[in-house]
Each structure stands twice: as structure tokens, then as C-alpha cells.
């Protein structure tokens, strides 16, 4: 247990040791503000809601999260520090989980920094608290899902840029796969499966303020699946 915590702590600290973290958080916040005030025509519509911000979260995270995860394994493999990390008296899964939790904490910091927006709408009007809370929870789950994907992709390569781009592609496909155009082109028996696999459809219901255990189960299974792949990839050095 302490191994997971110490990996997580080290990784979390490493984020803030490099300026990249600050750049990305700033970009994420500027983008969120722009979406909130201008894209949603906040001043014209006159509704005290964060709906548009949350609607756009799966898109903004598409860039933001892979940018966070891209270096987490790739750099360790490139510099050779992975060999140090993996010869400590720890198990591979503990290291993977530690890295994931560090990413999650970083993401939580970024999300929490948008809280002033929630404060703004609460001050200006009378927002639906449930929808705001569900929106934040949904955002965290989407972020965590992308995080698990990005972390796994990062473990496949030594090149951060490659990790970044491939993560974006995989996350994007997972997000978009449920849209009608794609579903219509699939054979009938595949449709329910693919529709359920789509992150987009699971996200929408949470955006409406509904926290469904099936959605939670969906996120958790996807996260576990990719963390499992990650552990396998790390262990694959042992297969020959």
C-alpha cells in the first residue's frame, strides 16, 4: 500500500516540477472559461448553468489528459529510470496504480480550479446543484477513463509525442463511436454493444444530472481494462 502511495506522491510532485503542468492547467482553464462565457453565449442566454462547460469536457480533456499522461511511462522508458522503478521491492501493478492515482489527483486539481465558475453562477442565479455536482463527478470519470488509456499508450512507447497522438485517437474513437452515423453503418447485432461502449452516450446522461450505477460501472470497467493492459505491457518485458 505504501508503495502505491509513494509512487503516486513522487509522480504528483514531478508534475509540478516542470513548467509543462502549469502551461497545461492554464490552457485548460482559459479554454474552459472561453467555452463557458462565449461558446455558450452565457450573457445572452441568461441561464445559471454549467451545462455547456460539462458538455465540452470530453473534448477539452481529449487534448488535456493525453498531454498529462504522455510522459508518465514514455520518459521513464527512454531515460531508463523504469528499470530503477521496477526493481524496487514493489509489484508492477502497484507502480501502475500509483501513476494512475497521481494523474487523477492532478486532474482533480485542474477540475477544482474551475470551481469559481460554479461560484459565479451560484452568485448570479439559482443553479441546479445536483446537475453541477453530477457534472463534476462525470468530468472526473471521463478524465479518469482518458487517463487510464493515455497511461497505457505511454507504456507502449519511448516517444512522448507518439504517446500523445495515439492516446488522443483512441480516446476520440471511444468517445465518438456511439454517434448515429457510425451506428447506422454497423451490422444490427453489433449496434447495442457499440452503443454501450461509447463514452459519449454514458457521459450525456451524467451531464443531465443523472448518476446511474450502470454508467459508473461502465467507467470503472474501462478504467480497469486499460490499467490491466498497462500492467501487462509493463510485464511484457519478461516474455520472450
Amino acid at each position: 500500500m505504501s508503495a502505491i502511495a509513494s509512487v503516486a506522491k513522487k509522480e504528483f510532485r514531478a508534475f509540478f516540477q516542470s513548467p509543462i503542468a502549469y502551461v497545461f492547467i492554464t490552457l485548460f482553464l482559459v479554454l474552459s472559461l472561453w467555452i463557458f462565457f462565449f461558446l455558450s453565449n452565457f450573457f445572452l442566454v441568461g441561464q445559471s448553468t454549467l451545462r455547456t462547460l460539462f458538455d465540452w469536457i470530453p473534448i477539452t480533456f481529449l487534448i488535456f489528459v493525453p498531454a498529462v499522461t504522455m510522459r508518465m511511462w514514455a520518459e521513464e522508458q527512454k531515460l531508463g529510470t523504469a528499470e530503477i522503478l521496477l526493481t524496487f521491492p514493489v509489484r508492477d501493478w502497484e507502480v501502475v496504480l500509483g501513476k494512475f492515482l497521481a494523474g487523477l489527483a492532478f486532474l482533480a486539481v485542474a477540475i477544482l480550479l474551475t470551481l469559481p465558475l460554479a461560484g459565479t453562477i451560484a452568485w448570479l442565479g439559482n443553479p441546479d446543484d445536483g446537475a453541477v455536482i453530477a457534472g463534476y463527478i462525470g468530468s472526473l470519470f471521463v478524465g479518469a477513463t482518458y487517463l487510464a488509456i493515455g497511461l497505457w499508450v505511454s507504456s507502449l512507447t519511448q516517444n512522448q509525442i507518439v504517446a500523445f497522438l495515439i492516446s488522443i485517437i483512441i480516446c476520440f474513437v471511444l468517445y465518438i463511436v456511439g454517434i448515429p452515423v457510425i451506428l447506422a453503418s454497423l451490422p444490427d447485432w453489433l449496434v447495442p454493444f457499440v452503443a454501450n461502449l461509447s463514452l459519449g452516450s454514458h457521459y450525456d446522461s451524467m451531464g443531465r444530472g443523472v448518476i446511474d450505477s450502470r454508467d459508473i460501472l461502465y467507467y470503472v470497467s474501462i478504467i480497469f481494462f486499460f490499467l490491466f493492459l498497462n500492467v501487462q505491457t509493463i510485464a511484457s518485458r519478461r516474455w520472450s
Binding site: 505504501s2 508503495a3 509513494s6 513522487k10 510532485r13 530503477i84 524496487f88 514493489v90
Partner: peptide, 26 residues
Amino acid sequence: YLPESAPVYAELGIVEYLQFVAEIRG
């Protein structure tokens, strides 16, 4: 174990790194 070419976490401070190693080694 000191692997070949002694890889290190460049972004950490010396004490910070040693603290991490002490911690992860329980």
C-alpha cells in the same frame, strides 16, 4: 541496483529523490 548509465529522475531534488527511494523501500 544501479542500472547501466545510472538513470535518474532529473526533475527531482537529491533529498527529494532519496526520500522517495526510502519511502518506496518501506
